[in-house]
Nucleic acid binder design. Sequence first.
DNA 1: CCGGACGCCTGTCGGC
DNA 2: TGCCGACAGGCGTCCG
Length: 282
Amino acid sequence: MPELPEVETVCRYLATAVAGRRIAAVLVREARLRQPIPPELPLAVAGATVETVWRRGKYLLWPLRPASAGILLLHLGMSGSLRHLPVGTPAGRHDHVDLVLDDGTLVRLRDPRRFGLLLLTAEPWEGHPLLRDLGPEPLEEGFTGEYLLRISRGRRQAIKSLLMDARRVVGVGNIYANEALFVARIHPEQPAGEIPARRCGALVAAVRQVLADSIARGGTTLQDFQDPTGQAGYYALDLAVYGRAGEPCRRCGTAIQVARLGGRATYHCPRCQRHSSSPSIR
DNA sequence: CCGGACGCCTGTCGGC
DNA sequence: TGCCGACAGGCGTCCG
């Protein structure tokens, strides 16, 4: 479900609503997520204070005080969501974990497909196996046209698949890869190494723009994404290609096409997004 | 090393 | 109405 803008929306809420609160208890109803929730996690975390909440890619990091309590590491997978609720709110079928706070509220993890993750790690979290190989943050300095040019040369991999590879750049999932390529007018199946050097900067700018616009709208709610207060995100209204197969391109009116690339639905406008070739070198 | 396919798990939807 | 396959916002692992 959540890509970078949705996780960022959740993160911003938690950073204001939960930072500084003490965790009174952790209730695990179902530990079998992508990796099992460690059995010792509830006792290890109970009594600790949430210092703040950070995001790295699609992971949420909750550093605790005292530091010896560690850092909560949370990932929402495809179907995960967090809700901030009053203690006593009845739990539903897929409400797997409650983080009970000291102010009469709780943060509840719901995840029907259980592709999510709740682990405990420690400083330096950058060395954690799940975080160690992550690429740059797309909204920070390291993600530039020069960087994209460097990592794409010589690769035959489709540019869309490269954008969705977290080792290259984090946070870009299927929705925003499709949208960014439309904005940059690049065909999703174009081999990454054949993208003209001068267009790499435009693609980086498109990724940044699409992600920032979505964050400003509170993310994309397709079916069920909500922020921890239950608020939907409205970037779905701005989607240009994702989920719009057969509908007219917002730029030229041509019918949007859908295909499968790497097992994922891939949308593009056949008129606005054409393969382009690098200038030949001789 | 690279790139693609697969599997994890549940819910929903469309076609027959 | 009911059944069945396809598909869904992610990602680690395996294989050629």
